[in-house]
Structures are given as structure tokens and as C-alpha cells.
């Protein structure tokens, strides 16, 4: 599966050249019988239980479920912060880990860090900005770890801040910004390296409804601009922004459905 797609905020959606799969879409992420088991003393917790899942380029997915259902674990594994105990995880054309074959394949720490750096943009409930760093420095962080030279960094950071309408706030620290502005800085940071996927974990959990709407407008726009977006949430009206809604229960996929209010032509179920 060869997938190359340039996705940047502000660019027009472009038709990607692709070798179509059966559903006519590019596979971005493939979960094959993924399980994640925690050993807590004598107790064994199956946070994820044999999940198989395919995520395509330009999907807009919400993951829902009660707390403890395993949605955070799913998010962490997609985001390469955690690795499964069994199953095969393929990201684009790379095997992140294959615990099923005889010879276990598992990316090392540096490879995982590199995927997180270049392919994944995180947006967290608590924003997770560095408190002493300015908006500019926060957005710059992934570029520093990517080893991009200073002048290029500056250009990219300013563009990302402009895309989230915060060009005039680049020298402010998080404490000088409102909740919504902080989350937009976090979105700018997630976008600055042009990742393959945006992972938003309860992105509106700490925001009032007005600001939540504002952030969701941004995420909708990101999707419209050809980005792949996954939102973890427990709020149905936030989840309703997505085109595909996955419900997790007890570590298994309970339901995986098309949001018919958004999509009239289901193609991937």
C-alpha cells in the first residue's frame, strides 16, 4: 500500500494518487487482532481485547465509550505512545509492531519517537503546553526534535499560528492565553510537522460550550482540508461532528457506524 499524501492546513483538498483498496480508499492505519493486557499484581486487565480496525486517509472518526472502556489505550497505541501485547499494527506502509508472527517485530524507542514526531499530531484535553514557553516555542518544539533548521522552523511556526488565528499571540505564554487559545496553540503544534493523523483526546473536555464549538470548527476544517482526524470523546454532540463513530466497550469495538447526518454515501463499512 503506497500512500503519499500531503496534508496541510490551508491547502486545497487534492486528489491523491492512490492504488485503491477494495473500499476505494487509502489505508492509513491497520489494526489486526490487537490486544493490550496490563498485569496489575495478580489481576490481569484486558484494556484492549482483540481489536481489528482499519482507518483510511481523510477519515474523521470519533471514538466513544465509558471511562475504563479502553478508548484511551486505543488512542495511545494509535499514537505510538504505547505498544500492544499482541496483534499487528501497521501505520502507512510501516509495521509498528507485529507480535503475532514467529519473529516479533517491534519498533524501538527512537523509531516510535520519530513516528510521533513526524506522523502524529496530538491534541490533549489538558492542552499539555509547556507552561514557561511562549506559544511560538510550544509550536516550535516538534520541529526542534525533527532537527529542522532555525529559519525554516520560524516560517513553519508562524504559518501554523496564523492557521489557528493566533499570529498575534506568538510571544504569549499559556497562562496569558484563554482556554480556547491554548487549545488552538496545541492544534498548531499538532499540525506544524504536517502529520498524517491528528489525534485529539477529549479536545473540548476542559472548555465551555462556546469555545468547544470554536475548536470543533477548527477540527472540521482540518478534516475538510484532507487531514485524517480522530477524536476521543464522551460527549455525543462532539462525536457527532465525525463521519464515522466507533463505540468501545470493555476493550472491544461495540459499534462502528457511519454518521449518516454527515455522510450520505457510506463507503467504508
Amino acid at each position: 500500500m503506497e500512500v503519499k499524501s500531503e496534508k496541510k492546513v490551508g491547502e486545497n483538498p487534492e486528489k491523491t494518487e492512490e492504488k485503491n483498496n477494495m473500499t476505494g480508499q487509502n489505508t492509513l492505519i491497520k489494526f489486526d487482532h490487537i490486544s493490550r493486557i496490563y498485569q496489575m499484581g495478580a489481576e490481569t486487565i484486558r484494556a484492549l481485547d482483540d481489536i481489528s480496525l482499519t482507518i483510511h486517509v481523510n477519515d474523521y472518526i470519533s471514538i466513544m465509550g465509558p471511562s475504563g472502556s479502553g478508548k484511551s489505550t486505543l488512542m495511545n497505541i494509535i499514537g505510538c505512545l504505547d505498544t500492544p501485547t499482541s496483534g499487528v499494527y501497521q501505520f502507512e506502509d510501516e509495521i509498528v509492531c507485529d507480535m503475532n508472527s514467529e519473529k516479533i517485530i517491534k519498533m524501538n524507542d527512537n523509531q516510535l519517537a520519530s513516528i510521533r514526531n513526524k506522523k502524529i499530531g496530538f491534541v490533549f484535553q489538558t492542552f499539555n503546553l509547556l507552561p514557561r514557553a511562549t506559544a511560538f516555542q510550544n509550536v516550535e518544539l516538534p520541529l526542534i526534535y525533527a532537527g529542522i533548521p532555525r529559519h525554516e522552523r520560524r516560517e513553519k511556526v508562524l504559518k501554523a499560528l496564523k492557521d489557528v488565528s493566533l499570529a498575534d499571540r506568538s510571544t504569549h505564554t499559556p497562562s496569558e492565553l484563554s482556554g480556547g487559545q491554548r487549545q488552538r496553540v496545541a492544534i498548531a503544534r499538532a499540525l506544524v510537522n504536517s502529520p498524517s493523523i491528528i489525534l485529539a483526546d477529549e479536545p473540548t473536555g476542559n472548555l465551555d460550550s462556546e469555545t468547544s464549538r470554536e475548536i470543533m470548527v477548527f477540527l472540521d476544517e482540518l478534516h475538510r482540508l484532507n487531514n485524517t482526524v480522530i477524536i476521543v470523546t464522551h460527549e455525543p454532540d462532539i462525536a457527532a461532528h465525525a463521519h464515522r463513530m466507533i463505540h468501545i466497550l470493555d476493550g472491544k469495538i461495540d459499534r462502528d457506524e457511519i454518521n449518516h447526518q454527515k455522510i450520505k454515501n457510506p463507503v467504508n463499512v
Binding site: R116, N117, N128, Y145
Partner: peptide, 16 residues
């Protein structure tokens, strides 16, 4: 600790 988590989530390797 949290700062380290943030750095790692945006791609800092152990060495860095």
C-alpha cells in the same frame, strides 16, 4: 514529569 511526557509525545527521543 509532565513536561517530559509532552516532549516525548511530540517526538523527543530518550537521548534528547
Amino acid at each position: 514529569t509532565r513536561e517530559i511526557g509532552i516532549r516525548k509525545s511530540v517526538g523527543a527521543t530518550r537521548q534528547k
